[in-house]
Structure formats: structure tokens, C-alpha cells
Design a protein around this nucleic acid. Structure first.
Length: 298
DNA sequence: CTTACGGCCTGGGTGC
DNA sequence: TGCACCCAGGCCGTAA
């Protein structure tokens, strides 16, 4: 499941070989996850890859327009710069291969490059997404995304969470609040910050928001260092697994002992997602029932 | 406006 | 061996 650390690892891998390459040819298989497949086959050939960046969980491949040589020897006015935006969904893989390499099942896109390598997109479930946008389209696209978790200041973090009545887990997963955090790193961050996933964000103490801000950045940084978490299908741009799944403290560790207190890790649905937590280290929010009881008592 | 929730996309894994 | 079912993450529509 590619989240920020996995996507960052893929991007760093792509950055090692793609910039400067020209796209020769685009071949597509199934295209139902591509906004405008025809635009890819028509506009990408001849483009030069300028750079690869990450926007939350999205990969952005910046493209300089194809140069057209007129019959009279002059060079046509170049078109506008384009950006190929790719979301890996749950099972998407973006890898650089040699054309002769065996093609993995469910490989739907082949981008032939001028150094005789091939960028391939493989996606078993096709929950991924691919679209081509202009420079202005890229700006509009970015407007829908929240803050970058590795760059957000404590002040901004407090502002985005402290005023909200939603559950903290839902906000961590909301890409318009923070870009790039998914289910794994939300659970791991909450555990490290000792905050229960169902807590109302606005009810958290300033100290807890500070802890969460720190935990999110620490977990993401540690995961990038280990090249991401390989749970099911994730591989980097060279096709290698990550290692951070070995360091998960709560995610997919239901009924295993907490690494801090030995209590059994529990799983519950919060914000429609499986949420893993330690019931002792991450105390549950007070329920309505418990609150009214308390009021009666008082 | 904010929040909650259900449904949808697809196919691998599981259990009978 | 086959088959029904569950589940994953993101997104969108709807309801309160």
C-alpha cells in the first residue's frame, strides 16, 4: 500500500534514471484508470522528462514538450510543459525495466525511453489513477492537497487539527489536511504519540498535538530510511521490497503484545478504516455514557 | 460549512 | 476442485 514513504522511495528511484530521457513510444493495455488515455499516446512521445517529484501520494513526472522539426529545417514552437500525474492506489507499481525483461501480470502501461529502458506501470486492482495536466492544471491539482507532513510547522499542524471536531484518525487520513499519510502511518503515528484513533482532534491537549506532529514526522522519516513498508504488492522503482513493515508497532499486529506494555493490540473501525492501537498506551476517549454518568455523579 | 457513512472500483486470499 | 465471501484505500454522493 503505497503511502508517502513508499511513494518517496519510488520517486527517488525514478529520479536516478528518468530525468533527461526522451519518451519514444507509449503502449497501453487496460486504460480505465487513466483520465484520458488518448492524450497519453498522442502527446507524450517526443517529450523530454524534466524531473520527478512527489505530491503527497502522487508521483509527478514533469515533461518538456516535444520539439517538432519542420521540413524547412526550422524548429516548431514548442507546446506547453506537461505533467504526468500517477497515483499508485493500493497495488500500483512503477518500475524501470529493460524491454526484454519479463512482463509482470497486470502491466498496463509501457513508456519506451531513448536509452532503451522502459518505464512500466503495473496495477493488479487498478485502484490507481493516471492523468496528464498542464502547468496551470498542476497548480489547480495541488490546491486540493493539504500540507506536506515532512514540512508542516507545529503552528500550522495545531491550526489544522486543534479546531476540528472530527476524529483524529480521520483527519490524518484526509488528504486535504495532510498530503501523503495513509492507514499504516496514521496508526503508527498515533501509537507513538499515545493518542487513541477515535479521539476528537479539538479535544487533544496542546502537548498531545505537539507529540502527534513529532510522531508523524518521525515515523515517515524512519520509513523512508527503510525504503517503505512492503505489505502486499509494494516495490520500489527497481522492483525491490521495503523493510519498514518489520518495524510496525501496531499496524496488522492485532492481539499481539504491545512493544511498550505487553497489552494485546486491538483493532477497531475508525473513519471506516481498520485501526490498530494499544488500549493501555492509547486510552479511549470518554464515551457519552461515561460522561453523563460523571455529570450525574457530580 | 462540517462530519459520518455507505457504496463503488477489483482481484487475491481464505475457508468451507 | 470450486465457489462465495471478505477485505484493502481513496473518493464521491448523500444525509444530518
Amino acid at each position: 500500500m503505497p503511502e508517502l514513504p513508499e511513494v518517496e522511495t519510488v520517486v527517488r528511484g525514478l529520479r536516478a534514471s528518468l530525468p533527461g530521457r526522451f519518451i519514444r513510444e507509449v503502449r497501453l493495455g487496460k486504460t480505465d484508470f487513466i483520465d484520458d488515455p488518448v492524450a497519453l499516446t498522442e502527446r507524450l512521445p517526443g517529450c523530454r522528462i524534466a524531473g520527478v517529484t512527489r505530491l503527497g501520494k502522487f508521483i509527478c513526472i514533469g515533461l518538456d514538450p516535444a520539439i517538432e522539426f519542420k521540413p524547412n529545417g526550422s524548429v516548431a514552437s514548442p507546446g506547453e510543459c506537461l505533467n504526468l500525474i500517477i497515483h499508485l492506489g493500493m497495488t500500483g507499481q512503477l518500475t524501470v525495466r529493460h524491454p526484454g525483461d519479463q512482463v509482470a501480470g497486470h502491466t498496463h502501461c509501457f513508456f519506451s525511453l531513448d536509452d532503451h529502458s522502459e518505464l512500466r506501470y503495473t496495477d493488479i486492482r487498478r485502484f490507481g489513477r493516471m492523468l496528464l495536466v498542464s502547468e496551470s492544471g498542476l497548480a489547480a491539482f495541488q490546491n486540493h492537497l493539504g500540507a506536506e507532513p515532512l514540512e508542516i510547522t507545529l503552528e500550522d499542524f495545531r491550526a489544522r487539527f486543534g479546531s476540528r471536531r472530527a476524529r483524529v484518525k480521520a483527519l490524518l487520513l484526509d488528504q486535504s489536511v495532510l498530503r501523503g499519510v495513509g492507514n499504516i502511518y496514521a496508526d503508527e503515528s498515533l501509537f507513538r504519540a499515545r493518542i487513541h484513533p477515535a479521539r476528537i482532534a479539538a479535544s487533544l491537549a496542546q502537548k498531545q498535538l505537539t507529540e502527534l506532529h513529532r510522531a508523524v514526522r518521525e515515523v515517515l522519516t524512519a520509513a523512508i530510511r527503510l525504503r517503505g513498508s512492503s505489505i502486499s504488492d509494494y516495490v520500489d522503482a527497481e522492483g525491490n521490497n521495503g523493510e519498514f513493515q518489520l518495524r510496525h508497532r501496531v499496524y496488522q499486529r492485532e492481539s499481539k503484545p504491545c512493544v511498550r506494555c505487553k497489552e494485546k493490540i486491538r483493532r477497531m473501525i475508525v473513519a471506516g478504516r481498520s485501526s490498530h492501537y494499544c488500549p493501555r498506551c492509547q486510552p479511549a476517549p470518554r464515551t457519552q455514557k461515561a460522561r453523563s454518568k460523571k455529570i450525574k455523579k457530580a
